[in-house]
Amino acid sequence: MMRDAPDKFERLPKLMSENEVRDDSSVQTAVRNLFIGSAPERESELAEMWKELDLIFQLTPDIHEGDRIIMDAGAYRYVRFNHRVLRAFWIAGYTAWEGSRTVAEAPSLQALDLTRFRELILSYESCLASTEADLEALPVGVAEPGQYPDANTDPQGRAASELATIAVAWALLHELRHIRHQREGTGADPYSDDEMAKHDEELSCDAFAATFLLE
């Protein structure tokens, strides 16, 4: 169970202008709380890394500069994300948990009932495709992002919501490793055609995020 931390998946106000980008203190606080809620035992390391990399997290509109899915890092200190990605991660957490639970509880693979699993996948795809992702109705049993079901009355929902939160922390940590690669000069040249180097950097960032949360 995650340690209770305020606003682990804080509902930041939705941006109305396509060109508006927020990086005020409430955005930074929301990200800090998400990190601490996901890895409370590494709070001091997170604080040191934040200071060392001089990090600034930015909330962008759901459609920004022609992009719809925004989760990236650049300019040696900036990490960007939007509401659409956070909502998609939330739904994906429920989807992953439902798939795992369904397989674990089924008496056999032939007896699998994937009806709800498919419903969750469709909701995830609708979130990515919609022009107003926040207005897309969530499937029954999926809490609004940031609302954590009670572990005693809805243990499945609580597990799924915590999994979703930790997944967002993983994704942001992945981006922090990109920042460090930039600062160390060890990242792939973004203007190069060397796809292997870019792939290797992505794997390096994946490994860093997973190790940081699971070690």
Rank of each mutant, 00 (worst) to 15 (best):
R77I: 00
D72R: 13
I70G: 09
G74T: 00
Q58L: 15
H64R: 01
D62W: 01
D62A: 02
H64C: 03
G74P: 08
D67F: 15
M71N: 09
Y76C: 02
I63W: 08
L55D: 07
I63L: 12
I63E: 13
V79E: 07
E65S: 09
K51P: 02
E48Q: 13
A75R: 05
D72Y: 01
P61T: 01
R68F: 06
D72K: 05
G74I: 02
P61V: 02
R80W: 15
L59H: 15
D72N: 14
G66N: 06
G66W: 08
F81H: 07
M71G: 02
E65C: 00
I63R: 08
E52V: 01
V79L: 14
I69H: 04
E65L: 12
L59S: 06
F57R: 09
H64G: 03
Q58P: 04
P61Y: 00
T60K: 03
E65N: 14
M49G: 01
A75T: 07
I56F: 09
W50K: 06
I63T: 14
I56N: 10
F81R: 08
E48C: 01
D62E: 12
I70S: 10
D62Y: 00
I63S: 06
I56S: 14
I63C: 05
Y78F: 13
L53R: 13
F81A: 03
R77K: 12
H64K: 02
M49V: 05
M71S: 07
M71L: 15
T60G: 03
I56A: 14
I69G: 04
Y76V: 00
R68V: 06
V79S: 10
E48V: 11
E65Y: 06
L46D: 00
H64D: 09
Y78G: 04
D62S: 12
L59D: 07
N82T: 09
R80I: 08
V79M: 13
E65H: 13
Y76L: 07
A47I: 12
D67V: 05
E48K: 15
Y78L: 11
L46F: 14
L55I: 15
I63V: 14
A47E: 15
E65W: 08
T60A: 13
Q58M: 12
L53Y: 13
F57S: 04
V79C: 14
R77F: 05
L53V: 00
G66C: 06
F81W: 10
L53C: 07
R80A: 09
D67N: 11
R77Y: 05
L55Q: 14
M71Q: 05
